[in-house]
Design a protein around this nucleic acid. Structure first.
Lengths: 112, 112
DNA sequence: GAGATGTTTAACCATATAGTTAAATATTAG
DNA sequence: CTAATATTTAACTATATGGTTAAACATCTC
């Protein structure tokens, strides 16, 4: 219960990164296609400097890669760390689904 | 992209709540069975006051209910808000799974 | 009622987060 | 070389977060 695995640190960073609406929106933007910093900033009502910081929070959590291409920075999604978050949540799925589904999931997991 | 639905606010609170290892551990503890504040505090190396704060972060995110039972507070899991987080992440599942699985998921979603 | 137990609240501290504006840097275009 | 464009960095502000200790409450037990 008090273990502190590397995975734990990842989860801290990933969930923290996902806790801000602008950062979640940015992930949605780069999911469609890689975008530059100013393209990413366009729909948000904050300064470019603020967006730059959000991008580094996402990059530090491993959720985007920032590739330098001339004077432009092209940001693309790296969803891999999301799977750790997804995995963590999956263990609780049984609690929010109804009894029938919960049973089905439980049986399916026992199968494997 | 700039919409700010109530669901969005939930996600802020839920992801924020999940971003701390003690809070995630507490959710694991109450998943087994409802526990009192001091029982929840026992495995963690922080003060009871600190645990009390974490519990209120979790309660504000809707993830636990704190039920008063005499002088004891019994905390039990309310996983419902986790489903919103799970749902958000699900949209990215295709990006971390391999092509074959991704296709399978895509087909399955089209089915429904 | 008095003392022990479970928990919260208050006051405080250090650091982190989210934003700003202004200046600096890097690259491209003329 | 110069000017424009894309982005970062620096310096600063305000508020939030995570922790502490000590005091306050509430409840149970004797």
């Amino acid at each position: 219960m008090v273990e502190r695995t590397p995975d734990d640190l990842d989860l801290d960073a990933v969930f923290q990164a996902l806790a801000h609406p602008i950062r979640r929106a940015i992930l949605e933007q780069v999911a469609d296609e890689p975008e530059s910093v100013s393209e990413l900033a366009e729909p948000h009502d904050v300064s470019l400097a603020a967006i730059s910081k959000h991008l580094h929070v996402l990059a530090d959590a491993g959720l985007i890669d920032i590739e330098k291409d001339g004077r432009v920075r092209r940001c693309h999604l790296n969803a891999a760390p999301l799977s750790a978050a997804f995995g963590w949540l999956t263990r609780y799925r049984v609690f929010w689904e109804d009894r029938f589904d919960a049973l089905a999931i439980h049986l399916k997991e026992d199968e494997t």
